[in-house]
Nucleic acid binder design. Structure first.
Lengths: 257, 257
DNA sequence: CGTGTCGTTGAGGTCGCTCAACACCAGTGG
DNA sequence: CCACTGGTGTTGAGCGACCTCAACGACACG
């Protein structure tokens, strides 16, 4: 094909990525900048660094390595995993754009889990030493950091409740509904889910084996709740999905509590 | 007995409790004061309030209520639980002296879990608005707060890995070894464990039913690993307990990672 | 001594795991 | 073009760990 060689195009694409600011970011109000003034935003831009995109399978950080920065998912998705000493691995979470990962490393300045890209993904790197120093001068930033850390705790608690008390079918239903809600928060179609993780990773997250997860997808499809095509999931019947989940949707939670 | 009536004794005992300072506290270096200077300790004492002791079953805070303070266990023990909408409850953790509870409420200023005393217990109440204001003037205090929140995340991740990938027997073994380590950190005998929670609460924490937990205690006793007398547990063979736990003790963890 | 709670033990059922085979797809090389 | 290969996902058969249901013992309390 008569296309001239373009040796500069790909790096310049990266530079474009690198130049994006917090102010212009679509994730503006989900991320760190939420609740800090517009004049501090510029200073935040000077701290936050965009890293070059990671491909599927590339690790953002590994357990045991020294903690230096928090990361905010900008595009794509990640999984965090905890390795047991017997070689087994537990998937702790899947992370979509706007979510911050790395909080578990603050305890003793060492990453305790692994973070790995599930697809081609980009992150903002937030060097902790600098954000720490910056936060002493910006009232509210520390509070916001702790709020975000607290969200992680809440998320883990819900994950724990799911693992401890729910059956396989309920777990998958809860997961899909949860993912759908997160899609909605990102202004994506909540009924059209593109799974970025493999069945194995998904099953592991749910505390199941692949075969069980696979059978559940089939069962949901036969029940007319989902339409499943490999990693393309479409939710056809939210009400019945809630039934499968075994409890009312989270919107009722406040009222019931 | 010729002892004069003492109507003031019990309240004065409470006052004694109330008067104890962070400086004099035995939990000094496990708690908030760790890593802040001695002169700020006095100011911290002015913020921290001791609450009157709670009896078994009394709730420290309930899910859905407004977040006002973090709590540090001073004596006794607590459980935190998350209620599902179907009436089920998941035990999220057991909390010994020196541990801080309530971090999950920072996300949106509402407690998301319940905290309940497992025995007669006392706590220090740390009003968050005041510690928040104080922390802006004391460098390092916020950092310490985040470190403690991060420890909670690490703890939950380990709990998750246990629930997701381990069998019943391994779960109980891991739990007992973990409890033993925490006893050691509190300078208690690590082989002599006094369980403050019921079998039901323990089983729930492990994602099992009471009967299974009970059978496991019997099995461990028959194997000569434990001596079990209701809530009095003595660990007779740490090495075998580690075998049952299915992986090397946490002291090897750093090296393996 | 009756009552209630808690913990233990037994019998039986079942959900999810194990093991195994197969379908599907992409990439590779003849 | 097709065979071959490896990775991923689905399906089936059988089994076992854990749950369910039920009864009983130990202990505290009135």
């Amino acid at each position: 094909m008569p296309v001239p060689p373009r040796p500069v195009t790909i790096p310049s694409l990266d530079l474009l990525q690198l130049r994006r600011t917090c102010r212009a970011c679509a994730l503006h109000d989900l991320c760190l900048p939420a609740s800090i003034g517009p004049e501090e935003l510029g200073a935040l831009d000077a701290i936050v660094r965009a890293r070059r995109p990671l491909d599927r399978g590339q690790v953002l950080f590994a357990g045991g390595t020294r903690f230096q920065a928090l990361y905010v998912v900008r595009s794509g998705s990640f999984k965090t995993t905890l390795a047991a000493n017997n070689g087994e691995e537990q998937v702790l979470g899947f992370h979509l754009p706007g979510e911050v990962i790395g909080f578990d490393a603050l305890a003793d300045d060492v990453h305790r889990c692994n973070a790995e890209a599930l697809e081609r993904s980009s992150v903002c790197e937030v060097p902790f030493a600098q954000i720490d120093e910056f936060a002493t001068r910006v009232p509210g930033l520390y509070h916001q950091l702790m709020r975000i850390a607290s969200r992680e705790v809440v998320r883990d608690h819900e994950h724990l409740a799911m693992m401890g008390r729910k059956q396989a079918q309920e777990r998958l239903a809860v997961f899909l509904r949860n993912l759908s809600e997160r899609y909605r928060a990102l202004h994506r179609a909540p009924d059209l889910i593109e799974l970025s993780m493999s069945r194995h990773e998904l099953a592991n997250y749910l505390g199941l084996v692949v075969e069980t997860a696979s059978r559940l997808f089939t069962r949901f499809e036969e029940a007319g709740v989902l339409s499943v095509n490999r990693k393309q999931i479409r939710i056809l019947d939210f009400a019945r999905l809630d039934d499968f989940a075994g409890e009312p949707p989270p919107s009722c939670e406040r009222a019931a509590g």
